[in-house]
Amino acid sequence: MAMRWEAFLGQVQERGRYATPQEAERAARTVLALLGAHLVGEVRAELAARLPETFALILLNPLQAAEPLSPERFVRATAAWIDGASERTAAWDVSAVLSVAAEAAGEGLIRRILLQLPPGYDLLFGHPERL
């Protein structure tokens, strides 16, 4: 079942320690748009089904990535899309959003998602060494 918008955004806001829901939403939109470009097929569709509708649509209509980005480049790309972000704040944004997405997804789906991503994303999802 899909996570509700308020619950998803509330958790992102809390984990990211954002001052406003708008800041949390901006981070979520950017990170999920980049993530969507890295996932294909059923895995992307299943994750989308567990996210609030607006975020599901962002995941399913992603920013195009020419190649899979390493975790470091994913963070750098996030920083490039968020006004005023540094790599450090972008790493915080990525972690806040992906850890909430991981909870929405559940353990089995996250394992399958991580198989589609370059090594090291387990840390971004807050799931180190769970494979």
Rank of each mutant, 00 (worst) to 15 (best):
residue 88 R to D: 04
residue 93 D to V: 02
residue 63 L to N: 01
residue 94 V to C: 06
residue 76 R to Q: 12
residue 85 A to R: 15
residue 129 E to K: 08
residue 24 A to P: 02
residue 53 E to M: 06
residue 17 R to L: 13
residue 112 R to A: 15
residue 6 E to G: 00
residue 56 A to Y: 05
residue 83 D to W: 08
residue 60 L to H: 10
residue 112 R to K: 11
residue 29 R to Y: 02
residue 32 L to D: 07
residue 83 D to R: 15
residue 70 S to G: 13
residue 82 I to C: 07
residue 16 G to R: 04
residue 100 V to Y: 00
residue 6 E to Q: 11
residue 111 R to T: 08
residue 94 V to S: 01
residue 122 D to E: 14
residue 70 S to P: 01
residue 55 F to A: 12
residue 20 T to N: 03
residue 42 E to Q: 14
residue 19 A to Y: 04
residue 123 L to P: 08
residue 118 P to G: 04
residue 84 G to F: 09
residue 61 N to W: 11
residue 111 R to F: 00
residue 49 A to R: 12
residue 73 R to W: 01
residue 92 W to S: 12
residue 38 H to D: 03
residue 28 A to D: 07
residue 124 L to D: 08
residue 115 L to W: 12
residue 79 A to R: 14
residue 81 W to P: 00
residue 35 L to N: 10
residue 71 P to C: 13
residue 112 R to M: 04
residue 125 F to E: 15
residue 78 T to S: 06
residue 109 L to H: 13
residue 80 A to S: 06
residue 48 A to M: 10
residue 62 P to H: 11
residue 86 S to Q: 11
residue 78 T to I: 07
residue 32 L to S: 10
residue 89 T to H: 05
residue 107 E to G: 09
residue 128 P to Y: 09
residue 29 R to C: 12
residue 14 E to K: 15
residue 58 I to G: 04
